[in-house]
Computed example of a mutant assay.
Amino acid sequence: MEMAKPLYKPGMDNRPAGKYREVGPRGGAVSNPRTVTIGRGDRLPPTQEPGRRWARS
């Protein structure tokens, strides 16, 4: 059984630096997902729609 990746809410800070992909509320794929790269100590930006989350790529 595969472990689910942790999901992060928009605006959370102090997440590990790296690439994050926009996903649905429970981690499912969304159409036209946004991908961002954050540095150490940066906040995760807002998602395109309310209720979506960020998952580390």
Score class of each variant (00 low, 15 high):
Arg52Asp: 10
Pro25Val: 12
Ala55Ile: 10
Lys19Val: 13
Asn14Gln: 10
Asn32Pro: 01
Thr35Lys: 12
Asp42Ala: 04
Arg21Lys: 15
Ala55Met: 14
Pro16Phe: 02
Leu44Gly: 04
Pro6Lys: 11
Gly11Tyr: 03
Arg52Ile: 09
Met12Lys: 11
Ala17His: 00
Ser31Leu: 05
Arg21Trp: 00
Val36Thr: 03
Thr47Glu: 08
Val23Asp: 08
Gly41Cys: 02
Ala55Gln: 15
Ile38Cys: 00
Thr47Leu: 02
Pro46Cys: 07
Leu7Ile: 06
Val30Asp: 03
Leu44Val: 01
Gly24Ile: 12
Pro33Ser: 04
Pro10Tyr: 00
Arg40Tyr: 07
Val30Thr: 09
Gly11Pro: 05
Leu44Trp: 00
Gly11Trp: 03
Val36Tyr: 02
Lys5Trp: 08
Pro33Asp: 07
Arg15Ile: 09
Pro33Lys: 10
Pro46Gln: 15
Arg43Met: 09
Gln48Met: 05
Ala17Thr: 06
Gly24Phe: 11
Tyr20Ser: 05
Lys19Tyr: 10
Gly18Leu: 08
Gly41Ala: 11
Pro16Glu: 09
Gly28Val: 11
Arg53Ile: 01
Val30Arg: 06
Lys5Phe: 14
Arg15Met: 11
Gln48Glu: 07
Pro33Cys: 05
Pro16Tyr: 03
Pro45Phe: 11
Gly18Ala: 01
Gly11Ala: 01
Pro46Leu: 06
Arg26Cys: 14
